[in-house]
């Protein structure tokens, strides 16, 4: 199963390494990790997406809670939260396939940020599934580079 954790942590040095170290040491997966400051400078928010059996996801929550620098852990329900991710992707094109690539972008709501004579630099922000889907759609054109922010999530309530 998938576990989505929204974690509030102290915004100080070494905290990210403590959290990632915890996952590494206990053999938990990190599918994605996004960190940023909240409206308060002294608190950061992390969205961590992991997969594992029930007991593993349970343990992740408990082990996160045990960390002194972790202020709050919330496990988000996939069906009751919004997940978003942003991706920058550089895709090759040629004269014959350029218009179909532009068409995919337009259908998928992706934005072309830069055009060079060989590549398009495209931005898409959407749910992780859509981002994945976009990658598979443009793969045949030739992907040069991908940068993803990782998932950020928030419960609807």
């Amino acid at each position: 199963m998938r576990g989505i954790f929204s974690v509030l942590v102290e915004n100080k040095d070494g905290v990210l390494s403590q959290i990632s170290g915890l996952f590494a040491r206990r053999g938990f997966n990190i599918d994605s990790l996004a960190v940023g400051e909240t409206e308060r400078h002294d608190i950061s928010s992390m969205t961590i997406v992991s997969t594992g059996d029930n007991r593993t996801i349970d343990q992740i929550e408990k082990q996160l809670n045990k960390k002194v620098d972790v202020i709050k852990v919330r496990r988000l329900d996939e069906t009751k939260c919004i997940e978003m991710e942003m991706m920058l992707i550089k895709v090759s094109y040629n004269a014959t396939n350029r218009s179909s690539l532009i068409e995919i972008c337009s259908v998928m709501g992706a934005k072309i940020l830069h055009v060079s004579n060989k590549h398009l630099l495209i931005e898409i922000h959407d749910s992780p599934e859509v981002v994945e889907n976009f990658i598979s759609l443009v793969r045949p054109f030739g992907i040069v580079e991908v940068q993803r922010t990782g998932t950020v999530a928030m419960s609807k309530n």
């Binding site: 007991r55 349970d58 343990q59 408990k62 082990q63 809670n65 045990k66």
Partner: peptide, 11 residues
């Protein structure tokens, strides 16, 4: 006293 010990090995 440690929540994380409960259920770590034995449910």
């Amino acid at each position: 006293i440690d929540t994380a010990e409960i259920g770590k090995v034995l449910g």
